[in-house]
Design a protein around this nucleic acid. Structure first.
Length: 476
RNA sequence: GGCGCCGUAGCCAAGUGGUAAGGCAGAGGUCUGCAAAACCUCGAUUCGUCGGUUCGAUUCCGACCGGCGCCUCCA
C-alpha cells in the first residue's frame, strides 16, 4: 500500500483520497489569469499552491496533464483595451507575455497547455449550441443567450447555494427582465458597440456576440481532455476560493448540462493573500506584482518559502517582515546545501542516513495530507538543524551522499534553494584580492588592518565568514 | 440578510480529545583574534472571551467579542 494523496474537496467539504479516473493519469485544470493587466502576488499565491500540487502529484508517480486557461476576453480585458485605444488582442498579448515571465521568475512549472479563450471560439460556440439544443439554455429578449438554472436541479451544490438566499438589492442585474430567472447567467453576450470597437465580437448561429466569462473554462477543458484522454471529466479542478461562486458553479452547470457527465471529481480552492487582513486586489489598490519583487531583487525562493509556510486553505497576510523572515530562511537552506556539498562523501554512515530517511518520510506524510506544505517545511528545517549538529561534531559522520540526495529532492520539490547570483568577474577579482590581503594581515596578527578590510568589503555588500577551510564570502 | 473563513509566543505559522511543530526576531552560552556561520539553552502553565459536553478541550457544542471573504464576471 503506497501512501495516498489526499486533498480537501470543496464538493464534499472533506479531505478525501484523490481518485483519478484512469490512474496514473491525472487531468488537472487550473483557472489562470485574466490578462488585462499584470497579475499580482495574490494571484500568484494560488498559482504557487497549484504548482506544488502538480509537483507533488508527479513526485507521487502520477502522470499529470495540466491545463491552464488565459482569460483574454471578458469585461475587464475589453474595458482595458478600450481605454488603451487598442484592439483586444493587442492589449492582452503583452500581459500574457508578462504572465509567463512572472511564472518563470517564481519557478512555477509551465502547464502542458495554455488555452486562450479567443483561440477556442468554435468550441465555445458549439457548447452554447449544444446547451440550446438540450433546452438548458435560451435566448433572452436582449439577444444574449442564458443558462436556465431551473433546468439544472443540482445547481448550487458546489457553493451550497441551496442553503443560501440571494441578496436582493442593488447587485441584482438590471437586465433581469431579459432573463427567465434573475439568477440565470450569460453564456453568450450579444455584441455591443464597445465589443465591436475592440474586435471582441464573433459570429454565431445564435447571434453575433462574445462568450460569457464562465464559458471558456468549460469549452476549453472539455476540448483538451477530450483530445488528450478521451474523457469529459476532469480529475482535479483548482482555483482561488473566490471562484467557487459563481464561476465554478456555472462551469459545472454548463459542462454537465452539455455532457451529462460529472465535470470534475475533485475541486480544490486556495485561500487569499491578504494585506493587513484585507484581500489583496487591484480594486483595493493594495497589491504588489511579481515584477515588483523581482525588481527589488527578491529571490523567488523566499516568496515560495513565505507562501509554503502557510497552508493553502488559510489566509496569509503579506508583510515585509514575513518576507524578510523567509529570505533569512532561504539563506540558511542555501548555506546548509553548500556545507553538505563540501563535506566528504560516504555511503555507510547511519545518523545522517536516518535523518535523510525521516526527512523524506515526513515530507511525504505532510504533503499527502491535504498538501500540508508548512509541515513539510518544518520537517526540512528539522533536518537542517539535526544534520548541522552532526556535521558540527569533531568527527563528522559519513553518508552525506544520501543526505545530500534527500535534501536536494525536497528542496527541489518545493524549489526553495536560493538563486546563485553571478557577480561581475572584475568585482570577484577585487573581492578575492581584498580577502587575500586580509588573510595576510591576519597572519601577521594585524587585526586592525584585517578588520578595516572587512569593513571595506561589507560596505560593498560583501559578507565574509572565516572557516577552517579559508574565508568564504557572499553578497548580502 | 444568506453562506463561509480567521483570531495560537514580539512577528509569521503548524497541530491534536490527553496536555503546544517550524521559521524570523531577542537573551545567554560553545566555537572564533574579533566577527560571521553553525550548534546548545531560554520564551505561550497556555491556544479571542464566557459557558457546556467529557476523566480530560486549544482541539467537540453554544453564545459573545474582534477581523475578513463570497453572494453573477475578483486567484
Amino acid at each position: 500500500m503506497t501512501a495516498q494523496v489526499s486533498l480537501f474537496n470543496t464538493l464534499t467539504r472533506r479531505v478525501e483520497p484523490l481518485q483519478p479516473l484512469a490512474p496514473p493519469r491525472v487531468t488537472l485544470y487550473t483557472c489562470g489569469p485574466t490578462v488585462w493587466n499584470f497579475a499580482h502576488i495574490g494571484n500568484f499565491r494560488t498559482f504557487l499552491f497549484e504548482d506544488l500540487l502538480r509537483r507533488w502529484l508527479e513526485h507521487s508517480g502520477y502522470d499529470v496533464f495540466h491545463i491552464m486557461n488565459l482569460t483574454d476576453v471578458d469585461d475587464r480585458t475589453i474595458k482595458a483595451a478600450r481605454q488603451a485605444g487598442k484592439r483586444l488582442v493587442e492589449h492582452t498579448a503583452p500581459f500574457t507575455k508578462a504572465f509567463f515571465e512572472d511564472r518563470d521568475y517564481l519557478r512555477i512549472r509551465p502547464a502542458h497547455v495554455y488555452t486562450a479563450a479567443t483561440e477556442y471560439m468554435p468550441q465555445m460556440i458549439a457548447l452554447v449550441s449544444r446547451l440550446l439544443e438540450r433546452g438548458v439554455a435560451y435566448k433572452g429578449e436582449d439577444g444574449s443567450v442564458y443558462f436556465a438554472i431551473a433546468k439544472f436541479p443540482t445547481y448550487g451544490r458546489l457553493s451550497q447555494l441551496d442553503k443560501r438566499e440571494i441578496k436582493v438589492g442593488a447587485r441584482v442585474a438590471s437586465d433581469e427582465y431579459a432573463k427567465g430567472d434573475p439568477s440565470d447567467f450569460a453564456l453568450w453576450k450579444k455584441a455591443d458597440a464597445e465589443d465591436e470597437a475592440v474586435g471582441a465580437a464573433w459570429d454565431a448561429p445564435f447571434g453575433r456576440g462574445r462568450p460569457g466569462w464562465h464559458l471558456e473554462c468549460s469549452a476549453m477543458s472539455l476540448e483538451e481532455i477530450g483530445k488528450c484522454c478521451g474523457v469529459q471529466t476532469l480529475d482535479i479542478h483548482a482555483g482561488g476560493i473566490d471562484l467557487i461562486f459563481p464561476h465554478h458553479e456555472n462551469e459545472i452547470a454548463q459542462s454537465e448540462g452539455a455532457t451529462g457527465q460529472p465535470f470534475a471529481r475533485h475541486w480544490v480552492h486556495g485561500e487569499f493573500l491578504n494585506v493587513r487582513g484585507t484581500k489583496m486586489s487591484k480594486r483595493h489598490g493594495n497589491f504588489l506584482t511579481a515584477r515588483d519583487l523581482r525588481e527589488q531583487g527578491v529571490d523567488a525562493a523566499a516568496v515560495r518559502l513565505l507562501f509554503f509556510q502557510t497552508h493553502y486553505r488559510q489566509p496569509v497576510d503579506f508583510t515585509d517582515e514575513a518576507l524578510d523572515a523567509a529570505k533569512e530562511g532561504v539563506r540558511r537552506l542555501g548555506e546548509f546545501h553548500e556545507r553538505l556539498q563540501k563535506t566528504g562523501r560516504g555511503e555507510k554512515g547511519e545518523v545522517l542516513s536516518g535523518l535523510a530517511e525521516k526527512l523524506e518520510a515526513d515530507v511525504a506524510t505532510a504533503l499527502n495530507d491535504d498538501l500540508n506544505a508548512p509541515r513539510a517545511v518544518a520537517a526540512l528545517f528539522d533536518f537542517v538543524r539535526a544534520a548541522n549538529r552532526e556535521l558540527d561534531k569533531p568527527v563528522p559522520p559519513p553518508a552525506t551522499a544520501r543526505a545530500l540526495a534527500a535534501f536536494e529532492r525536497v528542496t527541489g520539490l518545493l524549489d526553495l534553494l536560493p538563486t546563485a547570483r553571478a557577480a561581475d568577474p572584475a568585482f570577484v577579482r577585487w573581492v578575492e584580492e581584498r580577502i587575500a590581503a586580509r588573510a595576510q594581515a591576519r597572519k601577521s596578527k594585524d587585526f586592525k588592518a584585517a578588520d578595516a578590510i572587512r569593513a571595506e568589503l561589507v560596505a560593498k555588500g560583501v559578507e565574509i565568514e572565516d572557516t577552517p577551510q579559508g574565508t568564504k564570502w557572499r553578497l548580502a
